[in-house]
């Protein structure tokens, strides 16, 4: 279990308990966090669960694979150095306290 914080562009933040093994995307979907669309359901196939990982993050996150990298080039909001697909970040105790920023748009 880890606490994940999702911050919207207007500054609203939601803190959610996410189960081990669930992704940062699924944590948002199950708890109705707005702005994470995740059309493909979590297969790194659509790029609509884009998040910006907080700049101050020091927690170890999963390695980015080629497909995620490719998809991040065609997200609706611009790709930045801290862009990730939230379906590709599995949750464990190691990422407890992670903060992600939800982009302006996903589609």
């Amino acid at each position: 279990m880890a606490k994940i914080t999702y911050i919207q562009t207007d500054g609203t933040s939601t803190i959610v308990d996410v189960k081990d093994g669930d992704s940062v995307m699924r944590g948002a979907k199950l708890n109705g966090v707005p702005g994470i669309v995740a059309e493909c359901g979590g297969g790194a196939s659509c790029g609509t669960c884009h998040v910006y990982v907080d700049k101050d993050n020091t927690r170890p996150l999963s390695t980015m694979h080629a497909v995620e990298d490719e998809l991040l080039y065609c997200t609706a909001s611009p790709r930045l150095d801290n862009s990730r697909l939230s379906c590709q970040i599995p949750v464990s105790d190691d990422v407890d306290g992670l903060v992600v920023h939800v982009p302006e748009k996903q589609i």
């Binding site: 790029g47 490719e70 998809l71 609706a76």
Partner: peptide, 12 residues
């Protein structure tokens, strides 16, 4: 096929 970026761009 295994080109998700093409797919997303085509959709747009």
């Amino acid at each position: 096929v295994n080109k998700p970026a093409d797919y997303m761009l085509a959709r747009r």
